[in-house]
Amino acid sequence: MYIFVDYDGTLIKNPESEFFERYFFLLSKFSGIDLSEISRKVMKAVEETAKDTDNGKNLFEKFLEKISDNGDRKYWENLFMEFYKREFSKLKDIITKNDFLVELIKNTDKEVIFASNPLFPKIAVNERIRFVDLSPKRFCYIAHMENSHFVKPDPRFFKEIVEKLSINPADCVMIGDTENDIACEKIGIKFVHVDNEKEIYNIFVKGD
C-alpha cells in the first residue's frame, strides 16, 4: 500500500493561512520588499503558475517566469534560495505537528508519499518535513516544485506521481483535509479525512 499524505492541516494542524502569514512576514523582512507588495507579487505568480498547463516545464520554472520582470529571473531565484537557506527554518516556531500521524509514519513499514501541494522548491519542502521531526528519507517520494508540473486540485498532480512510481491508484490512499486532496478520487485513489483517526490507524497498522 502507498499512503499519500498532505501537509497543511494534515501533518501539521496549522491552516495554510497561518503558515503563509508568517512566511510572508519573514520573506518581506529578508527581501526588504513591502509586505503587501511581496505577498501580492508571489501569490499572483503562484496563481498564474497553477493555471499554466504546459507540462514541458516544471512548476519552479513556471513560477520564476511568472514572477520575473525585465529579465530579473536570476534575482528572484537567488532571493528565494537564500531565503530558504537562511530564514525559512524560523517558521518551525509556529508549527503544531499532528503527533498521531507523525508517529504512525515513523513506525510504519508502508510506503509513504509526501503529497502536499508542490508550491515550494525541494530545499523548502525538505525543511517543512523536518519541521515535524521527520526525515525526508522516510518518504519514498516527495512532491516539490522541481519534480511537479501540476498542483492540486488538478488530478494530474496525483496521476503524475502514480505514473512515475508505476503504481496502481487502487493500491493507494490519500490522507488530507480539503477538496484539493479529495481530487485524488478522480484517478481512483481513496481519500481519507485526517480527522478519521480510527481508519488512518488501520491503514498504517493493519493495511486496511
Results as ranks from 00 to 15, higher is better:
Pro118Val: 15
Ile113His: 05
Ser89Glu: 12
Glu103Trp: 04
Ala115Phe: 13
Ile94Arg: 11
Glu87Tyr: 13
Glu103Tyr: 06
Lys92Tyr: 10
Leu134Gly: 01
Thr96Ser: 10
Arg138Ile: 02
Lys85Gly: 00
Leu104Pro: 04
Val125Leu: 04
Thr108Gly: 07
Ile105Ala: 10
Phe88Lys: 12
Asn98Ile: 09
Lys110Asn: 02
Glu87Val: 14
Ile113Lys: 06
Leu134Phe: 02
Phe114Glu: 03
Phe88Trp: 06
Ala115Asp: 13
Glu82Cys: 07
Phe88Arg: 09
Arg128Pro: 05
Leu104Met: 06
Ile123Cys: 07
Lys90Ala: 10
Asp133Trp: 06
Asp99Glu: 15
Ala124Tyr: 04
Ile94Leu: 14
Lys97Gln: 12
Glu82Ile: 04
Tyr84Met: 05
Ser135Gly: 08
Ile113Tyr: 01
Cys140Leu: 01
Asn98Pro: 08
Pro121Asp: 00
Ser135Arg: 01
Thr96Cys: 07
Phe88Tyr: 15
Lys90Gln: 14
Ile129Trp: 03
Asp109Phe: 12
Pro118Lys: 10
Phe114Ser: 09
Phe88Glu: 09
Thr108Asp: 01
Asp109Trp: 05
Ala143Trp: 11
Lys92Cys: 14
Tyr141Gly: 05
Lys92Gly: 08
Ser89His: 14
Asp133Met: 08
Glu87His: 13
Lys85His: 04
Ser89Val: 15
Pro118Ala: 15
Phe114Asn: 02
Val112Leu: 05
Ala115Thr: 09
Val132Cys: 10
Ser116Phe: 15
Phe120Cys: 10
Phe83Arg: 15
Ala143Pro: 08
Asp109Gln: 11
Phe114Gln: 09
Lys137Asn: 02
Lys110Ser: 03
Arg128Lys: 13
Thr108Leu: 02
Lys97Met: 08
Thr108Trp: 03
Lys92Arg: 10
Lys137Ile: 00
Asn126Gln: 12
Lys110Trp: 05
Leu119Lys: 06
Asp93Met: 15
Lys92Leu: 08
Phe88Val: 12
Asn126Leu: 12
Asn126Val: 06
